[in-house]
Amino acid sequence: MNDRCARIASWLETLDRRWIFLVLAVVVVAALLSGVSTPDRATSVVQPIYDRIENLPAGSPILLSLDYSPSSAPELEPMADALTQHALLTGHPICYMSLYPTGNNMISRVEERVIAREFPQAVPARDWVSLGFQVGGEMLINSLRDSLTARYPTDVTGRPLRDVPALRGVRGLGDFGLIVSLSAGQPGLKEWILYAGDVIDVPLAGGCTGVGAPQFFPYYPLQILGLMSALKGAAEYEAALARGHPEFKAANQPATRGMGPQSAAHLVIVAFILLGNAGLVLRRLARRRSP
């Protein structure tokens, strides 16, 4: 018995970590291929964002700041997709911008993947407008508070903002019905809270990566309306959207599809943690029983 405990313990202690990587990869691929998904529903942190868009007066513009680069896209792009779908379904013009240099490409991806494919009837400048990236981070937000045209005289196509119907009645950040920052780091949601949400009376919400989530939860609900955290937050938003707008069920739901493999991977990680701890317990048992 003693020997067996020691043998199992040493096998677990010397297990090559590459087996763990392999098992994780196989499980994720199997979950993706099988199409397994986990049922989700919006929690009280995500639901207010959905409710805010749902209850906005008709035609109220929404500012969506895509503050991320390709490395964070798997977590944040599903949020951008779902928010775009929701805004266009409910008739609210969207204004895209970015604090990240890669922002223009990120905005183009949403335009191609969601607007062009699912909303071919949407008209540029009327239903959505892209302001693109501008350098400055928090100072950019600071100057946009009073006047959008101070730093964005035109949209990315060169059209003067006064000729953009989507921004009719918008002078500064306070005129948006909702501002959402999908944030991968700095500059991002934190700067939006410090330099916009806490300074002027404008509803501010956010989406963030899993790594950044603990930093932002303390701001909810006093300083931000709601928070979508990583793929899980995006899946919750998709669930709220599917429940409120059944026609969305047929749409592409990347976060919901990704949650199945993610949950499977989490189970594998939990199993390996338990296995590692079992090895530790067995080693102690073997030591205690050895003469």
Binding site: L24, V28, S72, E75, G210, V211, L231, G258, Q262, I269
Partner: peptide, 12 residues
């Protein structure tokens, strides 16, 4: 939360 984020990137 960080692990969750990394797994999401792997799935992506």
């Amino acid at each position: 939360s960080a692990v969750m984020g990394r797994v999401a990137l792997l799935v992506g």
